[in-house]
């Protein structure tokens, strides 16, 4: 391995770091909102909502993310200009839709873990369903939701690398360009791997921290 070359290309690959991080951040924002909506729909009393949510989860979790990204980037534009998005936005749409399917399961399992007696108590106190969800269920279920939620987040961080296939200039694409132009693969891949390892390890520590913060005080 040529360490001089590693030093030379590291700044180039790091230029993609901000795009990797904003892909991650935007996807987390949208997938959390989407996941919450899907989880509530899945628990709704209205049957078509439940069906839609179940169908969405089956669909998005049954297809590889790569194919979802291809669909957003290559197939959606066929439906017209309103459905044509630049690469970065396409990647955020694909990653968010995909992550939301997993987050909805994490959120749903947290919500159903709250004891049913609490619902009866809230009803007896005259709370509306919405109020009960927001004030009673969500604060208690967060503790259950956190571990699978952050696990999914770590996954999404890694999967931002797939955005390279729809030409988003994140770190993986920059590393691939170096491989193609310099005919050297080990050095750019090594740099790329170290950066990803730092990012995912940091998230694992953050996960432990968040879990501690939400632990029941005894």
């Amino acid at each position: 391995m040529d360490w001089e070359f590693v030093r030379e290309i590291t700044p180039t690959i790091l230029e993609g770091l901000s795009i990797t991080l904003s892909l991650f951040a935007w996807s987390m924002v949208f997938s959390t909102i989407g996941g919450l909506v899907l989880a509530l729909m899945r628990l709704s009393r209205i049957a078509p909502f439940r069906w839609f949510s179940a169908f969405y989860g089956w669909l998005l979790r049954g297809i590889p993310l790569l194919l979802i990204l291809f669909y957003v980037f290559f197939a959606l534009p066929e439906f017209g200009d309103a459905w044509t998005f630049p690469p970065f936005r396409s990647a955020v749409i694909g990653l968010s839709m995909w992550t939301a399917a997993y987050q909805s399961e994490a959120i749903r399992s947290g919500i159903i873990s709250v004891d049913a007696g609490q619902f009866e108590a809230a009803e007896a106190l005259g709370m509306t369903r919405f109020h009960y969800m927001r004030k009673i269920v969500l604060p208690q279920s967060v503790r259950i939701i956190v571990p699978p939620f952050t696990g999914n987040a770590i996954n999404t961080m890694k999967q931002t690398s797939l955005a390279t296939v729809i030409t988003v200039p994140e770190m993986t694409l920059l590393a691939q360009r170096i491989i193609a132009s310099e005919f050297k693969a080990v050095e750019p891949l090594f740099t790329l791997a170290i950066i990803f390892l730092i990012l995912t390890t940091a998230l694992v520590f953050a996960q432990a921290g968040v879990e501690r913060a939400f632990r029941l005080k005894t």
Binding site: K158, Q159, S161, A185, T200, T201
Partner: peptide, 22 residues
């Protein structure tokens, strides 16, 4: 376990293809 779970599968595949493969 730390390394292979911490890396995107795509990056591992690139190592297998561009480095090990060659």
């Amino acid at each position: 376990i730390w390394i292979f779970r911490g890396l995107p599968a795509l990056v591992i595949l690139f190592f297998a293809f561009f480095w090990l493969g060659r």
